[in-house]
Amino acid sequence: MGMTLKAEARPLSTKSEIKKLRENGKVPGSVYGKKIGSASIAIDAKELLALLRSNPHAIVELDIPGAGVQPVMIQDVQREKLSRTLLHIDFHQINMNEPVRTTVAVELTGEAEGVKSGGILQVQMHEVEIRGLPERIPSAITFDVSGLQMGDLLHAGDLQMPEGIELKSAHEDIVATILVPQKEEVSAEDQEEAEPEMKETTHV
């Protein structure tokens, strides 16, 4: 199980009250679920940021006033566009005995043979969508790229899923590729400029 967060009850508030809440280091939020319906809450901003940095898709034990500790997952995060300050958080209550659909990070390890030969590793997908029981959801899916040669593609279907976990992203989605470095083409004009001028000589 992931980390535990303690939620505070939050009555429906005015804009000024929500602003004050944020100034006091709290993030307004909501939690939804079959057992609890919906509840307005507030979470400590530092604890929430720590969770978002370490594993934003983790299962969280959320201590909800009046409902006790419930397993939840983050459903939506709202941030201020420029400062990226947390504005609002939504949690979804889950059933530990029912599969959930979520996204997890892809972590590439090792150094590809193609990179050693001068190629460039370009990552196109940092996360994949999976489905499985909550207790089996990994914090990340790892893949050793050591065997990738220049020009190779790593597809989502090439990733090894843990037991009990189903890949829901399209198997043909490209996760990463080893790009072949582009050689600079020299134009005919550049070649002419680079060549020394040949002077015509007349023999008498």
Rank of each mutant, 00 (worst) to 15 (best):
V145P: 03
S117I: 00
M161F: 04
Q160L: 08
Q78I: 09
A170G: 05
Q122A: 11
P134F: 06
K168D: 08
Q70S: 04
A67R: 09
P71H: 10
N95L: 13
A105D: 05
Q122W: 00
A176V: 13
E184C: 01
L179Q: 11
V106M: 06
A170R: 04
Q75G: 12
M161V: 14
I74S: 03
A170P: 03
V77T: 09
L153T: 13
E127C: 07
V77L: 04
S169H: 01
G132K: 08
Q122L: 11
T102D: 08
P162G: 01
T142Q: 04
G151S: 07
L82Q: 10
L82N: 13
G147P: 09
H92P: 01
E135I: 03
V69T: 12
L167A: 07
E61P: 07
P134A: 06
T103E: 07
L108P: 14
R84I: 13
M150P: 03
G119Q: 02
V69R: 07
Q182T: 14
E135T: 04
I165C: 00
I120M: 14
T85N: 04
M125V: 12
E111F: 03
P138F: 03
M125K: 14
L159F: 11
S139C: 13
G118K: 01
P181H: 04
D158C: 03
L133T: 01
Q182P: 01
E113R: 08
V175R: 08
H92Q: 15
V69Q: 02
I165N: 00
M96N: 03
A105W: 06
I74D: 01
I174N: 11
H126V: 12
T85H: 02
N95Q: 11
I74H: 00
K183H: 06
R136V: 13
R101Q: 13
R136S: 10
T85R: 06
R136G: 02
L148V: 09
V123C: 06
V115I: 09
M73E: 06
T102W: 03
L153C: 00
A105C: 06
E185A: 10
S169W: 01
L159S: 14
G157Q: 11
E107T: 15
M161T: 15
V100C: 10
H92W: 10
E166M: 12
A170C: 03
E172R: 07
R136F: 11
